[in-house]
Design a protein around this nucleic acid. Structure first.
Length: 836
DNA sequence: TATCCGAGGCTTTTT
DNA sequence: GCCTCGGATA
């Protein structure tokens, strides 16, 4: 059970609020997860049926955590509760209401970004669009943007203003057509189609409205228009909508998230109760003061100020490195020293950077120091080639309409079936209206094939038919092993004696442990459940029976925390542990609290019975769905003791005792892409706020005066965010170092170095207009023009831009200029720049 | 059809 | 600097 005595007065009010809209503005580290889970528990305790509660998060990690906590609080009383991500919830609804969704079959698969891109590329090819002017990624972003705004193809065509948009809309039309032909949805479709389903089928909407009387949404500031619409459609009748968020932590605007959604909540619900959670339980006073001070520079925000009863703690420490190597060296050396001095385990430390490209050098120096680390990188386990290959087999077996997956496996392993054969098979399938398995079966009749190709196709056909039969029953693990075996995938990899092939073998073994876990968690009544999915009454029938069906489905059948938690398949992958030599964490280290989102929550007990349900159907389909919707950042395994390296974005929601922010330079952070637009700059500043508030005890901020990035050296000014931290909160020298001694490499060299220098970077001047130009030291002296970092210039072709680095001197100086959307290197003499 | 090489590209990425 | 993609070649 839970006790309201665990809560502060505002938290308590949020938990006790029962009916009507509720906005909780929850600052970083203010215990919002606790509030959400207690609130759910409290609703149930006061008689609200668990199955009438829907709690939505963005990440699986958050969903899992919330589920576990609620389970701890409620035990079996929570049966039937929906705690899931936007995407999981929507997929679940879509599958259930598939009959209302014309053009798609229940076996639809979910395409990830890579799949999307390959579909789109084929569209662009078909439309004969110049890939220079219409890059697939750009068009993809545009389409995603449309979908996030709920613009259907017709809408996009209607409102396309310029040529690019017109072409993008054309591509959009074809792209949707192809997705449908493949019986596939992309991530954005999942939300958009659910909204459309509701809008076009009032009885369906009615059912879900009636069912979900209490809705809770986490990270509301990150919702995009489609998600916002979805939530508000569902909440419209009972208006028991509780949203939690923090406008200061809105860092996904570039992805379509609209912070206005949370800012306008009171307009949407004038009767809303608004509560502010401003007490922070995570960080020291100094860290919090710094974070508050930085974010206060944003004009577009709700006024609030976090406070804490925690100790003042250490001051922030600033290190001005010579270059990125010096910076990395410093970080590694600091970690080593703190470990030695304070007996901290590796996992106490996180190094956060703006872009993934910055991790390499850090890895190098950590390795050199013998400090174990793990990189949480962009490359996901499920995005690895070998994993995608096997998934493609599974997908084709499950959904033979999937041409993308079919194209992927046709010649993997090599069967001598290349582009031209693929084209012929696809064309034949198209003409005959066949799915890919059926087309293969008819390989005899496909025109223009050489005998060997024909034979190879037929043999593949036989293999797939055999596998398909097996896929309908039995374990996924057996099926995957069969695939690896019968296709000679193992043989192919094992014949290849490279380390990469070895890594692939290991990844596949890891994958097999994922499937094994999945198989183990599926109860015997899989068939029963599948039958239920099939015979489910249409929405709009009396809710009672459905709800009961849900309840029966709940225990065990749908909640498979183990499968989702996984925990195994990441460790061998990108999220790796590199063990250093001589790593001697003290004995007490193990007892330290593990980094955990909202770590103020009391320790959890061992897994109770799995009663809080989540949504996955069974079988190959269920497995594929899980894989598609579960990103492996969720698997950041807390048992592993390594320094964590990740982007500031990835760090959102996490906390660490000691945090290093590296690359704090103009053009890096804030990113050069944001320098021209005030809104983008404010988002960078919020990111800085997020990054600062990850730290519990200590934080180091580093910048380098020179940096090798993308192959060339650039000189950047220290980030403007330095100047936004009150000077009295920051030190230039770490007090754990002995007082200044002889000319060390940390002291004189940097201070005497090229430009602004540590003391001259403007921190003391405390400029708050964010302008940089005035602080810049002349870095180039041309005959006619001298450009400075930060100068705003105009180019006849590229338009307006801002200089982010200057290399060399005089007329031959190489300028890196951030124009809207692109970085350009220009030679001062020839660039023909004018100031504006 | 498979492979090799070079030009161009490059924020962030919960799903 | 490093990776991806596409074109040219064997």
């Amino acid at each position: 059970m839970y006790s309201l005595a665990d809560l502060n007065p505002v938290q308590r009010e949020a938990v006790e609020h029962r009916d009507g809209p509720l906005l909780i503005l929850a600052g970083a580290g203010s215990g919002k997860t606790r509030v959400l889970t207690y609130r759910i528990a409290h609703l149930v305790a006061r008689g609200v049926a668990p199955w009438s509660i829907l709690a939505i998060t963005f990440t699986n990690k958050a969903a899992k955590e919330m589920r576990q906590r609620v389970e701890t609080l409620l035990g079996s009383a929570g049966a039937g509760l929906w705690v899931s991500t936007f995407h999981s919830a929507c997929v679940r609804i879509l599958r259930r209401e598939i009959d209302h969704l014309s053009g798609y079959a229940r076996s639809f698969v979910i395409y990830d970004t890579g799949d999307q891109l390959s579909v789109l590329k084929s569209c662009l090819k078909e439309l004969d669009l110049d890939e220079k002017k219409f890059p697939a990624r750009g068009i993809s972003a545009k389409i995603s943007d449309w979908k996030n705004r709920l613009c259907q193809v017709q809408d996009a065509e209607g409102q396309a203003a310029e040529y690019f948009e017109e072409m993008a809309a054309k591509a959009y039309r074809l792209y949707q057509k192809k997705l449908m032909a493949n019986n596939a949805l992309d991530f954005d479709d999942i939300i958009m189609l659910t909204v459309e389903l509701f809008r076009q089928n009032p009885t369906v909407l009615d059912y879900y409205r009636d069912r979900f009387r209490y809705i809770l949404v986490d990270e509301y500031q990150d919702t995009n228009h489609a998600q916002y619409t979805l939530v508000n459609l569902l909440a419209a009748r009972y208006r028991n909508l509780c949203v939690v968020g923090d406008d200061d932590q809105a860092v996904y605007g570039w992805r379509g998230a609209d912070v206005q959604n949370i800012l306008a909540f009171e307009r949407d619900y004038p009767e809303a109760v608004v509560l502010k959670l401003e007490q922070n339980y995570r960080s020291t006073k100094h860290i919090l003061q710094a974070a508050n001070a930085v974010v206060r520079h944003n004009l577009d925000r709700k006024a609030k100020s976090l406070w804490t009863e925690n100790l003042s703690g250490d001051l922030l420490i600033h290190y001005a490195a010579e270059d990125e190597r010096d910076e990395a060296r410093y970080v590694a050396e600091r970690i080593r020293r703190l470990k030695d001095r304070e007996g901290r385990p590796n996992k106490d430390f996180a190094v956060l950077y703006r872009s993934n490209a910055q991790s390499r050098i850090l890895e190098e120096y950590l390795l050199r120091e013998g400090i174990p680390y793990r990189v949480v990188s962009g490359m996901k386990f499920y995005e690895r080639m070998e994993i995608k290959d096997i998934l493609a087999y599974l997908r084709v077996l499950h959904n033979p309409a999937d041409r993308v997956s079919f194209s992927r496996i046709l010649n993997v392993p090599k069967r001598g079936l290349g582009e031209s054969v693929l084209a012929k098979v696809l064309l034949y399938a198209e003409e005959q209206g066949l799915d890919m398995l059926a087309a293969l079966r008819e390989a005899e009749y496909i025109p223009g094939l050489r005998p060997q190709a024909r034979e190879a196709l037929l043999s593949l056909s036989r293999l797939l038919e055999e596998l398909r039969e097996q896929s309908l029953e039995g374990k996924i693990t057996d099926l995957v092993e069969e695939i690896l075996d019968k296709t000679d995938y193992w043989t192919m990899l094992k014949a290849d004696n490279t380390p990469e092939a070895q890594a692939r073998v290991e990844n596949l073994q890891e994958f097999l442990s994922v499937t094994a876990e999945y198989d183990a968690k599926i109860p015997e009544e899989r068939d029963e459940q599948a039958a239920e999915e099939g015979n489910r009454p249409a929405a709009g029938t009396a809710s009672g029976s459905l709800a009961e069906a849900e309840d029966r489905l709940g225990p065990g059948a749908e909640d498979r925390p183990g499968t989702q938690a996984g925990g195994t398949f990441l460790t061998g992958g990108e999220d790796r542990i590199v063990s250093g030599t001589g790593d001697t964490a003290s004995a007490g280290a193990e007892d330290r609290p593990i980094p955990e989102a909202g770590g103020d929550f009391p320790a959890e007990e061992e897994d109770g019975p799995a009663l809080v349900i989540d949504d996955f159907s069974a079988g190959v389909g269920g497995f594929l769905e899980q894989v598609a919707l579960v990103a492996d950042i969720d698997q950041l395994n807390e048992g592993d003791d390594g320094v964590v390296l990740m982007t500031m974005h990835s760090a959102k929601g996490l906390e660490f005792p000691v945090v290093f922010l590296v690359g704090m330079e103009e053009g890096i952070f804030p990113s050069s892409h944001s320098l021209l637009a005030e809104a983008a700059l404010e988002e960078e500043r919020r990111l800085c706020y997020v990054a600062l508030t990850r730290a519990k005890e200590k934080i180091y901020l580093c910048c380098a005066s020179r940096r090798l990035l993308y192959g060339h050296i650039q000189s950047n000014l220290p980030s403007r965010f330095f100047s936004e931290v009150p000077p009295e909160l920051m030190l230039d020298r770490d007090p754990i170092d002995p007082p200044p001694r002889r000319q060390g490499r940390m002291g004189g060299a940097v201070r005497g170095g090229g430009f602004a220098g540590t003391s001259g970077h403007g921190r003391s001047k405390n400029r708050d207009d964010g302008s940089l130009a005035s602080a810049g030291t002349p870095l180039a002296t041309g005959k006619s023009e001298t450009y400075h970092v930060g100068d705003k210039v105009e180019h006849e072709k590229f338009g307006r831009g801002i200089i982010v680095s200057v290399k060399g001197e005089g007329a031959s100086a190489i300028l890196t200029v951030a124009f809207s959307g692109q970085l350009k290197q220009l030679i001062s003499e020839y660039a023909k720049l004018t100031r504006f």
